[in-house]
Design a protein around this nucleic acid. Structure first.
Length: 615
RNA sequence: GCCUCGGUGGCUCAGUGGUAGAGCGGCUGCCUCGUAAGCAGCAUGUCGGGGGUUCAAAUCCCCCCCGGGGCUCCA
């Protein structure tokens, strides 16, 4: 925002030619005049967009200050785009100018010249020392990150790192064997956008009654129906169990933090994100965007010996909040409230960090494979590294690529802009060729000091640890997104789409042929497997179809034959039809889901007792 | 956040100034069925919200909300 303030004997204007976006004005407003006033020429700029409140507030403060200085109560607000070479959109500018006008009205006698016209004007400047002032106003404040600005300056170069340890500039690399890596690279570097349709997982998450938008909340805050909640909850448990097995201590920390806390304040500057801001009765707080704060603040107050290292803390954040730009939000892929498992490891130095990172690399692999993703086939490895770290630790990166099992994309930064020197991500490339990070781990050399986290080394000296930031699965919602996108991809290949058996809300669907077979079904008792009964008064064909559309892995039709023989006719989702006893079926399912968490069906067993959440 | 397209019954969508529609789903009844949609009848509506123009608005205009796509962004 740029403004020019002119203390004048009078100003007189006349609107001449109207522009496309001009505001409507009554005829008498086309011409106006004001005596003894402060004329405020305003140019709203591109960078002000989205920050109207702050800009308006600061601009008005500036105007008031000057008006008091020159001792006038008359103000003419004059939209005047020519002060800036990077003006905002007319729409935004008009709203901003109006907001300034409205706000000044309570204290001043204000007029506003019309927006969107070529205007003739006459102005008589008083010419005293304070009569002409220009001001530049920005929305930048303590809660706005500086990391983003720095990111623009830093130079990044792109390579492919092969299993043999060759670092090949992306332009010279032959992608013919790695089509998916090519897609990922294009997405990362060229920001290529092809598809112009809704991501397939959105229709699926709604139709399967898993997840849905919640218009009554803020965008990017979703609702989970019982089946969606079940799947999410199983995934959460799976990740948590594995992280605890790895040796992490699960904790719980608050979701909101004080803006004025010194460590947090400087951390915010290093993290390019917008936060939800909440006014509590006595302070302004922001909602956490990761679990870092809680864990760091906790360890700041802890007594740590080198014997305790590596020290691992874990929290499943429900939720982490990031106010992503409206247009970036998309289904389960990018949200404003999401569930992120976040596991920090505190280690003595870089060497230990590298060792620990490899342990976690294997942990993440186990978790992702359990979830139903094939590693490395379904994901693409990206590494972001500073030139300095690469030069000193080349072997470490090569070792990681070998462990991964196929080439990785490397982004090399000329200097360090974030708090980490190295991070890797496992990215999923979806049906629209868009990429999203799932697993990610980082080596952070800054926050040990920032949060004043100390451990005592062998010699009795206090030291700041190096910190690793791991999300072993990535956001739980993103796992669901990847699984749905993967299922959709299967269906395009002619394979029946499905979820992993352990995540299927209904594992066995029983369909009685007629009412008399219900008694048989009402008497069965199965533990440790989720089953339900389609007792609706519909034809068999229709009920089979509906079970298939729900992706139910085992469908069992029960008629006279089954009641008599106790041998079930089982329709399996892979297309097979098998005769087996109930016992064998249950054993098979338990066998196939061994080692995975189990939860009960969170719905009535009889379909006639269930509401339809979506239709 | 910007640009752009969209929002009509629970779902999918037709209707573009003049009496709100269809299919699916729901309900009721018939049918009692052997592996992907049986038949009939009934009820479904702040036409996303607010304001305006008009004798008259789902339809035209303005603002807002929600969603899609693009830009931007992606720790």
């Amino acid at each position: 925002m740029r403004i020019l303030l002119v203390h004048s004997d009078y100003i007189e204007y006349e609107a001449k030619k109207k522009l496309d976006f001009a505001e409507k004005i009554p005829e008498e407003k086309r011409k106006d005049r004001m005596e003894e006033c402060l004329v405020v020429f305003v140019s709203v700029e591109k960078r002000d967009e989205g920050k109207m409140e702050k800009i308006v507030e600061r601009t008005c403060e500036e105007i008031k200050k000057t008006a008091d200085l020159v001792n006038t109560k008359n103000i003419m607000v004059y939209p005047y785009v020519h002060l800036s070479s990077t003006p905002s959109s007319p729409k935004f500018a008009e709203r901003t100018v109006n907001a300034i006008y409205e706000r000044l009205k309570s204290e001043f006698n204000v007029k506003k010249s019309p927006f969107g016209y070529y205007k003739a004007f006459k102005l008589s400047c008083k010419g005293h020392p304070l009569s002409e002032l220009s001001r530049e106003i920005t929305a930048e404040g303590e809660e706005v990150s500086e990391a983003l600005k720095k990111e623009e300056k830093v130079k990044s170069s792109w390579y492919i790192l092969t299993e043999k340890g060759e670092l090949i500039p992306v332009k010279e690399y032959d992608f013919s064997e790695y089509e998916n890596l090519k897609k990922f690279t294009d997405y990362e570097i060229e920001k290529r956008r092809v598809a112009e349709r809704e991501p397939p997982h959105v229709e699926l998450m709604q139709r399967l009654e898993l997840v849905d938008y919640e218009p009554g909340s803020d965008p990017g805050n979703l609702r989970y129906y019982p089946k969606g909640r079940l799947i999410k909850s199983l995934l959460e448990e799976w990740v948590t169990d594995n992280v605890i097995d790895y040796g992490a201590m699960e904790i719980e920390a608050p979701i909101m933090y004080d803006f004025e806390h010194p460590s947090l304040k400087s951390y915010l500057h290093r993290f390019p994100a917008r936060q939800y801001v909440i006014q509590t009765p006595n302070k302004r707080v922001f909602l956490r965007f990761a679990a870092c704060f809680g864990q760091f603040l906790m360890l700041h107050d802890a007594t740590i010996s080198y014997r305790n290292l590596p020290l691992r803390l874990y929290e499943l954040t429900r939720y982490s909040f990031r106010v992503e730009q409206r247009g970036e939000l998309s289904g389960l892929r990018r949200l404003r409230a999401f569930t992120m498992p976040d596991c920090h490891a505190f280690v003595a130095d870089i060497e230990n960090a590298k060792e620990e990172m490899m342990v976690r690399f294997d942990l993440a692999k186990k978790i992702q494979e359990g979830v139903g993703l094939d590693i490395p086939e379904d994901l693409e490895l990206a590494m972001r590294v500073t030139e300095d770290f690469w030069n000193k630790n080349r072997n470490f990166l090569v070792e990681m690529v070998k462990r991964w099992g196929k080439p990785a994309l490397v982004e090399m930064w000329s200097e360090r802009i974030f708090y980490f020197v190295f991070k890797y991500e496992w990215n999923y490339v979806d049906n629209l060729d868009k990429a999203s990070a799932l697993t990610t781990d980082q080596i952070d050399i800054e926050n040990g000091k920032r949060y004043d986290i100390k451990y005592t080394d062998k010699e009795g000296n206090e030291r700041h640890p190096v910190i690793l930031h791991l999300s072993p699965s990535g956001a739980i919602e993103r796992i669901m997104y990847a699984l749905l996108e993967k299922a959709y991809r299967d269906s395009k290949k002619g394979i029946k789409p499905s979820l992993p058996l352990w995540l299927s809300p209904t594992q066995i669907r029983f369909i009685p042929i007629s009412e008399e077979h219900m008694k048989f079904l009402e008497n069965i008792r199965i533990e440790g497997v989720r089953y339900d009964i389609d007792d609706r008064n519909e034809t068999l064909g229709k009920r089979i179809r509906s079970a298939e559309r729900e992706w139910i892995p085992y469908i069992v039709v029960v008629g006279d034959k089954e009641v008599k023989s106790k041998v079930l006719s089982v329709r399996i989702r892979n297309g097979e039809n098998r005769e087996m006893t109930l016992e064998d079926l249950v054993t098979e399912i338990k066998e196939k889901t061994k080692g995975k968490p189990f939860k009960k069906l969170p719905l009535p067993i009889k379909l006639t007792k269930r509401p339809i959440f979506r239709g």
